[in-house]
């Protein structure tokens, strides 16, 4: 697959994503500066983590109006694969490609830790390489990661199976104690109705190399690659 990693001023996980896709997963991958207005020939896009525009106003809000985002939005609307991680997830909600908003952690602290998350579905293009309800430790590193969606919309999201990952305990228990930031229904990652846009706060690109703890995060990208190859 041909991948693009969008680089905003203040992105800091762009290189990790590039390394995971290029060096580890042997994909064709290139950086795309946020001022570019054409994406070229791409099969997948990563909106990486970081602090685009210093998180001014609201995390991800200003990046949403970067020149390249028009292209990213129309790419997503045409069914192109977009993965937004952390700050990238915030951009996806800000741009309306995904519902809801990411707000300050209830603790008001920046949280940086290995966080167990549970895979809620394995029949999607982002999770088909996981075992049912697999639990994996994936790092979170955010200050605005508390996912919020109003009750009626939350029900719609849950009913359509839009939640792909939830924060949980190491044995897979999803409850208030295993919720690090106050996200509604322990939501850590969601997919759009078209099934082609994934947003998640945890950083799977940091768990793609066995040299660094383990490589469970890699299965997200491998799921996409697998599905793409068989399509």
């Amino acid at each position: 697959m041909k991948w693009g990693v969008i680089v905003f001023p203040g992105s800091n996980c762009d290189r990790d994503a590039h390394d995971a896709l290029g060096r580890i997963l042997k994909q064709e991958v290139r950086f795309i500066w946020h001022k570019e207005t054409e994406l070229g020939d791409l099969d997948g896009i990563i909106l990486p983590g970081g602090f685009s525009y210093g998180d001014y106003l609201r995390s991800g809000a200003i990046a949403t109006f970067s020149p390249v985002m028009n292209e990213v939005i129309s790419f997503a609307k045409r069914g192109g694969i977009v993965i937004g991680i952390c700050n990238g997830f915030q951009m996806l909600t800000e741009s309306g490609l995904l519902p809801g908003a990411l707000r300050q952690n209830h603790s008001l602290s920046f949280i940086c830790q290995e966080q167990p998350i549970r895979v809620e579905r394995t029949d999607t293009r982002f999770t088909n390489q996981y075992e049912s309800h697999q639990v994996m430790g994936i790092p979170i590193a955010h200050h605005e990661g508390s996912y919020f969606l109003a009750d009626n919309e939350l029900k719609r999201l849950e009913d359509r199976g839009g939640v792909l990952f939830r924060y949980c305990s190491t044995d897979g228990e999803v409850d208030a104690n295993s919720n690090p930031n106050g996200s509604v229904n322990n939501i850590a990652g969601i997919v759009n109705e078209g099934g082609n846009v994934l947003g998640m706060m945890p950083h799977p690109e940091r768990r793609c190399d066995d040299l660094i703890y383990h490589s469970d995060g890699r299965l997200i990208f491998e799921s996409v690659i697998e599905e793409f190859a068989s399509a």
Binding site: A61, I62, F65
Partner: peptide, 8 residues
């Protein structure tokens, strides 16, 4: 458009 996020 920008200054407020109507979701929250």
């Amino acid at each position: 458009t920008l200054l407020a996020n109507e979701n929250v």
